[in-house]
Nucleic acid binder design. Sequence first.
DNA 1: CTGCGTGTAATGTAGCCGCAATCTTTGGCT
DNA 2: AGCCAAAGATTGCGGCTACATTACACGCAG
Lengths: 213, 213
Amino acid sequence: MARALLEALRRRDVLADHVRTIADADAMARVGTYDVLVLDRRLPDGEGLDLVAALRQRKHPVPILVLTALGGVDHRVDGLDSGADDYLAKPFAIEELLARLRALQRRGPAVSDRYLSFGNLSVDPRTNEVSIGGALVEFPRREYLVVEALMRRPNRIVTRPNLIEAVYALEDEIGSNALDAHISRIRKKLLLTEASVEIRSVRNIGYLIRAKA
Amino acid sequence: MARALLEALRRRDVLADHVRTIADADAMARVGTYDVLVLDRRLPDGEGLDLVAALRQRKHPVPILVLTALGGVDHRVDGLDSGADDYLAKPFAIEELLARLRALQRRGPAVSDRYLSFGNLSVDPRTNEVSIGGALVEFPRREYLVVEALMRRPNRIVTRPNLIEAVYALEDEIGSNALDAHISRIRKKLLLTEASVEIRSVRNIGYLIRAKA
DNA sequence: CTGCGTGTAATGTAGCCGCAATCTTTGGCT
DNA sequence: AGCCAAAGATTGCGGCTACATTACACGCAG
């Protein structure tokens, strides 16, 4: 069954990983960044819904589709109420599963390296390149990381701690206005290139990128 | 059918509105803040999926569950791919519908982050932005917190202690009329921007926001 | 050695916000 | 009805501080 599914997904250029146990799935969910999780209820080491509950308790945001042979209405209700986002009873048409996966992915958090575009500014996380009005603009590493972090949530505040984490990852870099300095340099570039966006500060909170006034 | 559904929802303390046409639903979605939209495919003035497509094109974020008598797999695929988040074929168990609605609502933004709207004033807790009559109005941090706290319970009294807690969180700020001063400044802005709401004081208790007399 | 990236520190600046003084409103009391 | 005290409204002032900007130094790479 898993093999058939994987094959069907592969044929449609969907990237998928497969593990057999709850423990493995848990581990994968911890490290990997997946758009959707497909879960069977009957698994070698337990009940799939327990994993759903565990993930949700940890506030794990990944959309989950539960797949099962237990088709009764009450089973479906239990499944959904445990924190799953969709529930499909076997047997099912592969096309329906794929459509439901698409629906879930559409809603899920942005894929981590999708092209980011806002105003006349765009960012390619794969190549770390920034274009403004179609023209490539050089952004050194740290400045780039700030821009990318802001572009992941245009029009929304990105907190100072978030930005620092995005730029300095693990390295504990504290006690200076380095971030402010980067912001200032980025702003200068945005001005020179006549970008249609600006970085606004939100006192005591952080920054956000938005369309220029 | 709609009547039965409404009745079932009401019995479970779910607040629901019902309209019969696509046009009405569209209008409701524009102004109202709903957690989920339940949509039939066959409607007096057209095909429900067209509304889904229209809403999605406008980037309307509301989760949509499509309900229909057309139960074939390909119909379901079409429904999901048009931008709906779930698809349920009639006949269905009311319990399953309710569970799916819960799942959809769960996935939406947390209640605390939802867009707050009342009169021609709206507040976005994610960005800490306030718009009046569609226009962005600047509210500094403390004033913003007051507005947000009031907007969370429109037409209802928010006590002075509650407001102070909302604005000053942990910091122990006592002994002045700072809160009154903020209220005053907010009122001035509401006047200047011709807001349709006003802040009324309730002697010895607190304040409330309500439609202007 | 030279140039760029980046952290640091110094300096400048804006605007929030608390304070207090003054004025207005409210509600209770006789 | 009229008065008073207390609550609330309003306003200008000023200090504080987060943020902006700039210059500079260090380090690494070519």
